[in-house]
């Protein structure tokens, strides 16, 4: 009964409305997310993205409309919804005073899993945090915090993950790290709902994109479908020109190698191969 429809769409949202006094944040939002896909909710600040995520993760109640996550109604089956999800909020929700390992163990214990220590060690390895595992999180860089934050969300392998603006405030390298983690998630069959205000992020990560504007979804589709909405004559191609981000990454080196050594070689052919190398990891 509840297993047929949700198998196809672990996230289903119909006519969702939410107002704060006179401010109508959501005025009838509809969308569905297919299992194992990455769905991007794109919108500017204040478009209502976070409100959607909070309703889906049972932190807020909707005024009207229905939403189901993994087949459970968020309004009436909150506990089951929380068993099925992980939320990575807008700001890395990590405990700064604990170490990276302790943060992961804490979440594993709260999810009532066996062998929290092993789970923590595996995730530290997977997110290249093993070296920093014993350090207080307050000493971590923004990218490391986000990686830890996402690692915490993977504990217990929930079938649905919400990522609310996962790369806001990160430097380009941190952003690429997070993108890689999100892509891996989808490959493992996790359904990901991602909110972002960055167009390129949606373009890089999402199987389907919905644009949320003034509390409504004004368009939904794959990237190719969205592109077809515009007359091709208006599209500008600037493929051959490296973006500032690519230049930055080529010079700095995405592995954080000695910047001077790379600069010395960047004039020659070495520089351009590096540049190709870093764009390749980008795809």
């Amino acid at each position: 009964m509840t297993t047929t429809a949700p198998l196809a769409e672990p996230i289903r949202v119909r006519g969702l409305q939410k107002s704060y006094k006179d401010l109508h944040v959501l005025r009838g939002v509809d969308f569905g997310v297919a299992r194992g896909s990455v769905f991007a909710l794109l919108g500017s600040n204040g478009a209502g993205k976070t409100t959607v995520v909070k309703i889906l993760s049972t932190l807020l109640k909707a005024d009207a409309g229905t939403a189901t996550v993994n087949g459970f109604d968020v309004a009436t089956r909150g506990a089951e919804v929380r068993e099925s999800i992980s939320l990575t909020g807008q700001f890395a929700a990590v405990d700064e005073i604990l170490t990276g390992r302790e943060n992961l163990v804490l979440v594993a214990q709260l999810r009532h899993l066996k062998h929290p220590g092993t789970i923590a060690a595996d995730l530290l390895e997977r997110f290249s945090l093993t070296e920093a595992a014993g350090r207080k999180v307050s000493t971590y860089s923004g990218g490391m915090r986000r990686r830890l934050d996402i690692a915490m969300s993977l504990i217990g392998s929930p079938p649905v993950i919400f990522l609310d603006e996962p790369t806001t405030g990160l430097d380009p390298e941190g952003r690429i790290e997070v993108w890689r983690a999100v892509r891996e998630l989808a490959q493992h069959g996790t359904t990901v709902l991602l909110t972002t205000q960055y167009l390129d992020e949606a373009e890089h990560l999402a199987d389907r994109i919905a644009i949320l504007h003034h509390g409504r979804i004004i368009v939904t589709g794959t990237l190719a479908e969205l592109k077809r909405l515009l007359p091709p004559a208006k599209v500008e191609y600037v493929e051959k020109q490296p973006s500032l981000e690519e230049v930055f990454l080529a010079i700095v080196g995405s592995e954080g190698k000695d910047a001077n050594a790379d600069l010395d070689r960047s004039a020659g052919l070495d520089g351009s191969t590096r540049l190709n190398g870093s764009t390749a990891t980008d795809d």
Partner: peptide, 13 residues
């Protein structure tokens, strides 16, 4: 403020 309260509240605890 740092969001860990919401993280806990969205977990099966």
């Amino acid at each position: 403020r740092n969001g860990i309260f919401e993280r806990f509240q969205s977990m099966p605890i």
